[in-house]
Design a protein around this nucleic acid. Sequence first.
DNA 1: GCGACAG
DNA 2: ATCTTGTCGC
Length: 275
Amino acid sequence: MRPARPDLAPRPGLSRDEMESLQRRVAETAVFEDDLPFDPARVSLDTPETENRTLTEATALGGDADGDSPPLVAGIDQSFLDDRALSAVVVLRGGEVVERVHAVSDLDLPYIPGLLSFREGGPILDALAELDCDPDLLVFDGSGRIHFRQAGLATHLGVVCDAPSIGVAKSLLCGTPDEDVDGRPEGWRTPIRADDSVDAVGGHPADPETTIGYAFQSRQYDSRPIVNPLYVSPGHRLSAATTVDLVSRLSGSYKLPEPTRLADAYADEAKAQYE
DNA sequence: GCGACAG
DNA sequence: ATCTTGTCGC
């Protein structure tokens, strides 16, 4: 898939101030409301035998989520080799993997909280460029709107690709949960509201009333090692409520949503060929 | 100055 | 993210 807004793509060599101002431009461009080319209810991990093979092949490379075939959902994750990143993308349609690609790219920056997209964004775009199909939804490993300037990795790349995107993080970058998140039952969720560290930008407020994401308990085994919740947030073209709903629909038997879990495994698997 | 921070 | 042994449980 090709970047719709290459002008907003993360570029190496920018100063910290330039990176932050680019993030504000990204946030202003971002849409935190549902603007989808498909019905969220059609996203699932099911593989109904009623799936039409011919139609499946016909839309495999097109990307449109029309007809009976479920939307194409891409999971994206990375593994690292010295100063290089291996970005992996696994695309699912329902419960089936329809495409897997990866790219190895040089890293320009170290990890800096708040500037993750400038370290991993370029490498991820390299992998997405290898894709033959055109995903309807992008699921990133990291935050979207839950970010100091409301422009985390998922928002930045979602805007650059102008595709609906979701951010799934394993820990909270900023914002405040409405309730305590410890030891909650499977399926539980609570809003993450903007706090003092979140800036208002574009038409997006940042007062304590603004829900920038959700803490979501995707899995909880029979007690024991209490599983921490996931922190999900809209990347682009999605509301916070629909974002949790989609992550819930994409959750299988593990803590991470299936697209992310598969991309995570593929990133490690492919890594072996380079070390 | 203090605190806090996705992967 | 990555470095890593053993250990508990289905």
